[in-house]
């Protein structure tokens, strides 16, 4: 599991980040926290994207993860970071597994749309339900770590980094297994995959469930990082669109890509927001179009080219 270049790089990067984070200023730590929390969801969407599936509704699982944390906090006073994360991933993953029985028969825009519909059902419920916080959402109390309450953001940052690292390693392994390799093959010819003896529906169901667990975990981590949840920034279809945007921005080439892509997205957002608050979406949309037209492999393919040139020299 650790004996390839990607895995080694992930371990090294994790070490550097965890040490570096202790000395970094708060705002940098924050950017990494948000970036890596979102990256978890992107990692899952990447698994789907490799098979040609785009979900315009993964905010459903992102939101479930985030709201699981909020409701556990309010109803039961659960503040432990690991319990919260587990709750988010389990709730979203269970929902994803169940929805997966239907979703595995859908492709293309029907897949995208059914996901949208399901996420908007949740959005519709949350927005109109007082006990779920309605449009205002909830504030979430500070997370504790195995009983102790940290004084800075650093411990949470380390945990998010470690969770991200572990997930990346697991997905990296998954992508090298037989079922994980069934990506382009499914996109190219489902009939052949069936005749070879593998159920395309089962393969897609697994990919879908993986993506929902990761999206739920991402939602939980995001809720903890932000200290609040609300439907507009956690469940609405524009959030799903944002997740898809970062997925395409990152590129499907490698499990490290979602982390880099998410960080770029965070930085882009912070600066664009400061420089031109009314043109933030414009910048995002234009970037998106540029990527679709000229850089189909996303940021990762650019990095690969850079690396390739260096090696050639």
């Amino acid at each position: 599991m650790f004996n390839d270049k990607t895995a080694k790089f992930i371990l090294l990067a994790g070490l550097v980040l965890c040490i570096g984070g202790a000395f970094a200023p708060n705002w940098i730590v924050n950017q990494f926290m948000f970036g890596f929390a979102r990256a978890l969801a992107i990692l899952g969407l990447m698994v789907l994207w490799r098979t040609g599936l785009v979900s315009f509704g993964h905010a459903f699982y992102f939101g479930l993860g985030a709201y699981a944390v909020a409701i556990l906090d309010i109803e039961l006073g659960v503040t432990d970071v690991f319990l919260r994360l587990l709750a988010g991933a389990v709730v979203a993953g269970t929902a994803g597994f169940l929805v997966g029985f239907i979703m595995r028969n859908y492709r293309d825009i029907f897949f995208a749309m059914l996901n949208t519909a399901i996420s908007m059902v949740l959005f519709g419920i949350v927005v109109k339900t007082e006990s779920l916080g309605s449009t205002d959402g909830f504030a979430i109390s500070m997370s504790t770590i195995l009983g102790f309450a940290p004084e800075s953001k650093y411990p949470l940052f380390v945990i998010i980094t470690l969770i991200g690292l572990t997930s990346a390693l697991l997905v990296n392994f998954y992508l090298k297994t037989t079922v994980g390799k069934l990506t382009t093959a499914i996109r190219d010819n489902e009939i052949r995959v069936e005749y070879l003896g593998f159920s395309v529906a089962h393969a897609i169901h697994l990919k879908y469930t993986i993506s929902t667990i990761l999206a739920g975990g991402a939602g939980a981590l995001m809720a903890m990082s932000l200290g609040q949840v609300d439907p507009e920034s956690m469940i609405n279809w524009t959030v799903s669109g944002e997740l898809v945007f970062v997925t395409i921005l990152s590129g499907p080439g490698n499990v490290i890509a979602p982390f880099i892509g998410s960080l770029v997205f965070e930085v882009l957002r912070t600066y664009a927001f400061e420089l031109a608050p009314q043109a933030w979406q414009l910048i995002m949309g234009a970037t998106f179009l540029t990527i679709i037209f000229f850089v189909p492999g996303g940021i990762w393919s650019l990095l690969e080219k850079l690396g390739g040139k260096k090696n050639a020299k």
Binding site: K181, A185, R187, D188, I191, R192, V193, L196, F198
Partner: peptide
């Protein structure tokens, strides 16, 4: 022929072999 047209011959066969070997 029903093959994976955007993959190489080796990749096609590896998928076939892997599915046959890993039930």
């Amino acid at each position: 022929s029903q093959v994976f047209h955007s993959m190489t011959v080796s990749e096609n066969l590896m998928i076939a072999l892997a599915i046959a070997n890993n039930k």
